[in-house]
Amino acid sequence: MTTIPGLVGAGLIVIGAGLGLGKIGGSAMDAIARQPEAANKIQTAMIIIGALLEGLAFGALILGK
């Protein structure tokens, strides 16, 4: 990871994960604003998808070490 390609790769992973998390969070906020009564279900789904994305990002960071 200390090599320059490794660091660039880590940066790319973080950018990708950040975009993904932003999209999930933004869509969830929109959905909650439209249907505040469904906020609990939307939050649960948001956290699950966020966790899956996070697992992928961490997996990439570790495998790309």
Binding site: L52, E54, G55, F58, G59, L61
Partner: peptide, 14 residues
């Protein structure tokens, strides 16, 4: 299960 174990390990290590 692989994503489960990596997620927990990496989060706490980080």
């Amino acid at each position: 299960p692989f994503s489960l174990l990596i997620r927990l390990f990496a989060n706490i290590t980080a």
